[in-house]
Design a binder for these strands. Structure first.
Length: 983
DNA sequence: TAGAAAACGTA
DNA sequence: GTACGTTTTCTAG
C-alpha cells in the first residue's frame, strides 16, 4: 500500500446484528426467507462504493475488505472460559442471513475475510496496523466501541447508520477518554454482553474520571489506596486481577497470523451481471435497478442466482459452531455445550438434562394485574424465547373465545417452590364467576381487562425478535388473529417433533411429554370434566386453570429445548424450516377464509337421498322377509348368510360375516337381487349422514362459510389431513356423490378454480427410480397407463381395449402402493397366480422399479426410516419385525412413503409460495382448500385467466430450486361456479 | 359413556 | 397393495 491509499475495513459481523435490530424486518417474497439484514448490508456496501464522497465518510476507498467472526472458539475463551458465555444467540430469522451476507460480499466482488480462532475485531486491528505502517489511511466501517481503541490520526471509524465519522474527538466526547485509553476504560467497566467482568460498581463515567486522575490502569491499580470512596476503593483493590484479565480480553490483537495484506484488498470493477443475479435472487428490486444503471447492465437479461440458504444449520455465523449458542435457548439456564461438541452431543445433553428438572405446579403464578403482566413480559422479552399457549371455549378456532393465556420463559424448577422466581404463568381474562349461572355467568373477580392484557401480549407476540414457542401454533395463531394479533417469529414443537419423528408415535403434547420427560401433564378432563358434566374453560376454577395452563406452556418450552437442537443434528432443519413452519400461516389463512356451501342444495339432496333410501329399505325388508337394521353389519350378515343361505364369501377378523361392498358386489354379479339393493342403500345413507346432513352444521354462523381444520402433523408421509369437516373426502366417483360437490360454490362475481397435479405420484416414481421409459413417456406427454400396457402386453396404444389399459393402470397404482400379488388380484378380480405373473412381467419390463423397491426396503430396514426427495423422513420402527405379515405391511408402506411424501412436499412448497406469488401479480385470488394433489381457489371473475397462469406456474415449478425433477410436473386447472364443474 | 370394529368417502 | 377421517353399530365397563 502507498501513502495516499485508503483502506476500508467493514465489520461484517457487527453490521449484521446492528442492521437486524435497526431495520424493519423484510422477507423474500417468494418463500419468506428473512433478508432484512442482507438488504441493509447490500445497500450500505453499495453506498460505500458508489457514493462515499457525498457522505460524511468523506473519502473514497482504494482498498476494501469485509471482515467476519469465524466462531466463538477464540483465544479469549482459553483465557477466560466464560467469555461471551451469556451472549444471547442470534434470533431465528437472522440465522440464514449470516451465510447470505457472505454471499453478498462475494457478489460485490469484495474480499470476505475470517479466520479461525480470531474475532473480526482482531483481524481489523491487524490490517489497520499494517496499513498504518505503510503510511496509508484506514476507515473502519463500524460503530462498535470495542474498535475505538484502534483510532489514531491514520485510523478512523465510520457509523453508517448515523452517517457519522468517528475520530479521537468523537471518542472523547462519547467516553470521556481518548482512544488510546479505551482499553483501560473497558477493563474497568467490563462488558455485560461479552461477559467481561471488569470491576463491580465502575461504570464509564467513574472509569473515565479515575483514568483522568491516575493516568492509566496500572497506575490506578498501584495507587488504588488513595481513592476516597470506600466501596470504590475496596472494589478496585479486590478486583484488580479481574481488571487485568479484562484488559487482556478487550485488547485487540494486531498480530493475527493473516495471510493477506491490506494491499491485496485493492478495489476492482464491479461484476455487474454477477451482482445483479444475486440481488435478483434476494428480491431487492430498487438496488437491482440502481446497480443495473451504474454498471450499464440490462437486468432483465439476467437470471437470479442460485443461492444456497442455511436456514437453521450451524454452518456460518458467530457462535453457531459452538452448539450452545446456535439457538436462543442457551439463555435458559440448562447446561450448555462445552468446546468441540457436535450438534448431536448437544442434543443428547439436552435430552438428558430435560428429564432431571422435575415439573412442579406450585411455582406457577396466576397473573391478575397489568403491572405484573408487563413485568413478566419484559423478563420474557429479555430472555428472547417464550412459550405461549391459549385457553379458549372451543376446539374450533373459528368459534372459540379466548379465556386466558399462559407464558413460560424458563422451565419452572421444582427447587424454588412457591416462593421462588416465577418462570411460567397463567393470565386469566374471561373466566366466569360461576355463581350466577342463571344470569349467564358474570366475569370472575381479579382478571385484567382483556384489552389491556392483549395490548401487552400483542407487543410480545408481534415482535419477530422474540421467539414464540407453541405446541400446534396454527390453533393459537387463528385465535390471536381473531383478536387482532399476528404472531411473528415462532417455533412449533409439534412440527419440530414431526420433522424429526414422523412415524415414531403421536406428536400431541401429552404424548411428547410422556416420551421425553416421562411426565403426564394434567389432563384436560381433570379440570374441565368430561361427558355430560364437561364445562367450557371459562367455567374452570382459576386456580385449577393456572396449574393446567401454565404447565402446558412450561412443558412446551421444555419440549422445545429438547427437540430444537435435534433438527440440525439429524439433518432435518430444512424440512422443518421450509416444509413445516411456513405452512402455519398458510393453512391458518385458508382455514379462516373457509368455503361457501349452499345449504339449499344440501337440504334438497338430503331429501332425495332419504326418499331413495326409504324406498330401498322397504324393498330390502320385503326380500329379506323381515324388518331388521340394515345398517348393522351383524344383523345383515345373519340375514344374508344365515337365513337366506347365500354363499358367504369371507369373514372379518372377529369372526363376523363380511358384508363389505366387495362381497355384496360379487353376490350381485351372481344374480342375487338383495345385495345390489343393500349396496345402493348404503351409498345413499352414507352420502346423507356423512355429507348432506353433516355439512350444514359446519357452516359458521358468523362467516356463513365452512372452515375445515387441517392437521399438519397427522400422517407418516407428510400429507395433510382435514377434519371438522373432512373436505378431502368429498365424493367424486359416482354421479350421486358428485352432486354434493355442486353445493360447494363461490361468492357472486367469483369463480372456483381447481388446479390439480396430473399423475404426480407416477412422475415422482419415474424421478426417484430413474426409469428411462417412464421419463420419456412423461416428457412426450403420453398416456402413461396405455404406455405401460403397451410395454407389458405388447398391445399398440392406438385403439387399445379399455380392459387392457385398466389392468395396466391398476398395476401402476399397485407399484406406488408397494404391490403384492394378493392386492393386485383383489383389485382386478383375477387369480393370485395371474396377478403374480403380471408383476413378474412388469419387473422384467421395468427392472429399475424392482431395484428401487428392493433398495428402498433395504434402506428402511437398515435405518428404520425412508426419505422423500426433500429429505423428509418417515420412520418405520417395526420394519424388521419377525411377524411376516406386519413386516410386509411395513415394507409396502416404506416403498410408498417416498413417493406419496415427495408429492406431498411438492404441493406444500407450492402452497408456501402461492399467496405471495398471487399478490405479486396483483391478484386477489384466495387459496381455500388442498386435497393432496389439488388446490382450490376463489377468484374474482376478471382475474380467472391470469390466476390460472400464476397458479399453474407456481405448482409446476414447486420443486425448484431444491430439486430439479427429471420429469416435468403438469398441472390442469379450470374455473367454474361450483366444485363439481371446476374439478 | 368411551372405544373398537366395520364400512366407506377421498388421493 | 399406500395415506387418511367420519359414521354407525355394538360391546365392555
Amino acid at each position: 500500500m502507498k501513502k495516499d491509499d485508503h483502506l476500508f475495513l467493514v465489520d461484517g459481523s457487527g453490521y449484521i446484528f446492528r442492521a437486524y435490530h435497526a431495520l424493519p424486518p423484510l422477507t423474500r417474497k417468494t418463500d419468506g426467507l428473512p433478508v432484512g439484514a442482507v438488504s441493509g448490508f447490500c445497500n450500505m456496501v453499495w453506498k460505500l462504493l458508489s457514493e462515499a464522497r457525498d457522505t460524511s465518510v468523506g473519502v473514497t476507498p482504494t482498498h476494501l475488505a469485509v471482515i467476519f467472526d469465524h466462531s466463538s472458539q477464540t483465544f479469549r475463551k482459553d483465557l477466560y472460559p466464560e467469555y461471551k458465555a451469556n451472549r444471547s444467540a442470534p434470533p431465528e430469522d437472522l440465522v440464514p442471513q449470516f451465510g447470505l451476507i457472505r454471499e453478498a460480499t462475494r457478489a460485490f466482488n469484495l474480499p470476505c475475510i475470517e479466520m479461525e480462532g480470531f474475532e473480526a475485531d482482531d483481524l481489523i486491528a491487524t490490517y489497520a496496523r499494517q496499513a498504518e505502517e505503510a503510511g496509508a489511511h484506514t476507515t473502519i466501517i463500524s460503530s462498535d466501541k470495542d474498535l475505538m481503541q484502534l483510532v489514531t490520526d491514520h485510523v478512523a471509524m465510520y457509523d453508517t447508520m448515523k452517517d457519522r465519522r468517528i475520530e479521537a474527538a468523537e471518542v472523547i466526547e462519547k467516553w470521556g477518554v481518548p482512544p488510546e485509553k479505551m482499553i483501560d476504560l473497558q477493563s474497568l467497566t467490563g462488558d455485560s454482553t461479552d461477559n467481561i467482568p471488569g470491576v463491580p460498581g465502575i461504570g464509564p463515567k467513574t472509569a473515565a474520571q479515575l483514568l483522568e486522575t491516575f493516568g492509566d490502569l496500572d497506575t490506578l491499580l498501584q495507587r488504588a489506596g488513595e481513592i476516597k470512596q470506600n466501596k470504590r476503593r475496596e472494589n478496585i483493590i479486590e478486583f484488580a486481577d479481574q481488571a487485568r484479565l479484562s484488559r487482556e480480553l478487550v485488547t485487540l490483537r494486531t498480530d493475527a497470523p493473516v495471510t493477506d495484506t491490506p494491499g491485496d484488498f485493492l478495489l476492482e470493477e464491479q461484476d455487474g451481471p454477477r451482482l445483479i443475479a444475486f440481488l435478483k435472487a434476494m428480491g431487492f428490486n430498487t438496488l437491482t435497478r440502481r446497480v443495473a444503471e451504474a454498471t450499464e447492465t440490462d437486468a432483465a437479461q439476467i437470471e437470479p442466482a442460485e443461492v444456497a440458504v442455511e436456514w437453521g444449520a450451524a454452518a456460518h455465523g458467530p457462535d453457531l459452531d459452538a452448539g450452545d449458542a446456535s439457538d436462543p435457548s442457551s439463555a435458559t439456564g440448562i447446561a450448555g455445550a462445552s468446546d468441540g461438541w457436535t450438534p448431536g452431543d448437544f442434543a443428547a445433553a439436552r435430552t438428558k438434562a430435560a428429564a432431571d428438572v422435575k415439573i412442579d405446579h406450585s411455582g406457577y403464578a396466576c397473573i391478575r394485574d397489568a403491572e405484573t403482566l408487563a413485568a413478566f413480559i419484559a423478563t420474557a422479552r429479555e430472555t428472547g424465547v417464550v412459550a405461549f399457549d391459549t385457553e379458549t371455549t372451543s376446539l374450533d378456532a373459528m368459534q372459540a373465545d379466548l379465556v386466558g393465556f399462559s407464558l413460560a420463559y424458563q422451565p419452572q424448577d421444582a427447587h424454588s417452590g412457591a416462593s421462588g422466581p416465577v418462570k411460567a404463568c397463567y393470565v386469566p381474562l374471561s373466566h366466569k364467576s360461576g355463581q350466577d349461572d342463571l344470569l349467564g355467568g358474570g366475569l370472575a373477580e381479579g382478571q385484567i381487562p382483556i384489552d389491556a392484557a392483549l395490548s401487552h401480549l400483542k407487543d410480545l407476540l408481534e415482535d419477530p425478535s422474540v421467539l414464540k414457542i407453541a405446541q400446534n401454533l396454527k390453533y393459537d395463531w387463528l385465535i390471536m388473529k381473531r383478536y387482532g394479533i399476528e404472531v411473528r417469529g415462532y417455533d412449533d414443537t409439534m412440527l419440530i417433533s414431526y420433522a424429526l419423528d414422523a412415524g415414531r408415535g403421536g406428536q400431541g403434547m401429552d404424548a411428547l411429554s410422556d416420551r421425553w420427560f416421562g411426565h403426564k401433564p394434567i389432563a384436560y378432563k381433570e379440570v374441565a370434566g368430561s361427558g355430560k358434566s364437561a364445562v367450557t374453560f371459562d367455567y374452570v376454577d382459576i386456580d385449577k386453570a393456572t396449574a393446567y395452563a401454565a404447565e402446558d406452556a412450561d412443558v412446551t418450552l421444555r419440549l422445545w429445548q429438547v427437540l430444537k437442537p435435534r433438527l440440525a443434528a439429524e439433518g432435518v432443519a430444512s424440512v422443518y424450516e421450509r416444509l413445516e413452519r411456513p405452512m402455519v400461516p398458510v393453512l391458518a389463512r385458508m382455514e379462516s377464509r373457509g368455503i361457501r356451501v349452499d345449504r339449499q342444495i344440501l337440504s334438497r339432496l338430503s331429501g332425495d337421498f332419504a326418499q331413495g333410501a326409504a324406498a330401498l329399505e322397504e324393498e330390502i325388508q320385503e326380500l329379506a322377509g323381515e324388518k331388521f337394521n340394515i345398517g348393522s353389519p351383524k344383523q345383515l350378515g345373519e340375514i344374508l348368510f344365515g337365513k337366506l343361505g347365500l354363499p358367504g364369501g369371507s369373514k372379518t377378523k372377529t369372526g363376523q360375516w363380511s358384508t363389505s361392498a366387495q362381497v355384496l358386489e360379487d353376490l350381485a354379479a351372481e344374480g342375487h337381487e338383495l345385495p345390489r339393493k343393500i349396496v345402493d342403500w348404503r351409498q345413499l345413507t352414507k352420502l346423507k349422514s356423512t355429507y348432506t346432513d353433516a355439512l350444514p352444521d359446519f357452516i359458521n354462523p358468523e362467516t356463513k362459510r365452512v372452515h375445515t381444520s387441517y392437521a399438519l402433523a397427522a400422517t407418516t408421509t407428510g400429507r395433510l389431513s382435514s377434519s371438522d369437516p373432512n373436505l378431502q373426502n368429498i365424493p367424486v366417483r359416482t354421479a350421486e356423490g358428485r352432486k354434493i360437490r355442486t353445493a360447494f360454490v363461490c361468492e357472486p362475481g367469483c369463480k372456483l378454480v381447481s388446479a390439480d397435479y396430473s399423475q404426480i405420484e407416477l412422475r415422482v416414481l419415474a424421478h426417484v427410480a430413474d426409469i428411462d421409459a417412464l421419463k420419456q413417456a412423461f416428457a412426450d406427454g403420453m398416456d402413461i397407463h396405455a404406455m405401460t400396457a403397451s410395454e407389458m402386453f405388447g398391445v399398440p396404444v392406438k385403439d387399445m381395449p379399455a380392459e387392457v389399459r385398466r389392468r395396466a393402470k391398476a398395476i401402476n397404482f399397485g407399484i406406488i402402493y408397494g404391490i403384492s400379488a394378493f392386492g393386485l388380484a383383489n383389485q382386478l378380480g383375477i387369480e393370485r397366480s395371474e396377478a403374480s405373473d403380471y408383476i413378474k412381467t412388469y419387473f422384467q419390463r421395468f427392472p429399475g422399479i424392482k431395484d428401487y423397491m428392493d433398495n428402498t426396503k433395504a434402506y428402511a430396514r437398515e435405518h428404520g426410516y425412508v426419505e422423500t426427495i426433500f429429505g423428509r423422513k418417515a420412520h418405520y420402527p417395526d420394519i424388521a419385525t419377525s411377524n411376516p405379515h406386519m413386516r410386509a405391511f411395513n415394507e409396502r408402506a416404506a416403498i410408498n412413503a417416498p413417493i406419496q411424501g415427495s408429492a406431498a412436499d411438492i404441493i406444500r412448497r407450492a402452497m408456501v409460495r402461492m399467496d405471495a406469488a398471487l399478490e405479486d401479480a396483483g391478484l386477489t385470488a384466495r387459496m381455500l382448500l388442498q386435497v393432496h394433489d389439488e388446490l382450490i381457489f376463489e377468484v374474482p371473475e376478471p382475474e380467472v385467466d391470469k390466476t390460472i397462469g400464476i397458479v399453474t406456474d407456481v405448482m409446476e415449478s414447486a420443486s425448484m430450486p431444491a430439486v430439479s425433477m427429471k420429469v416435468p410436473l403438469k398441472v390442469d386447472a379450470r374455473a367454474a361456479d361450483n366444485w363439481d364443474e371446476a374439478h
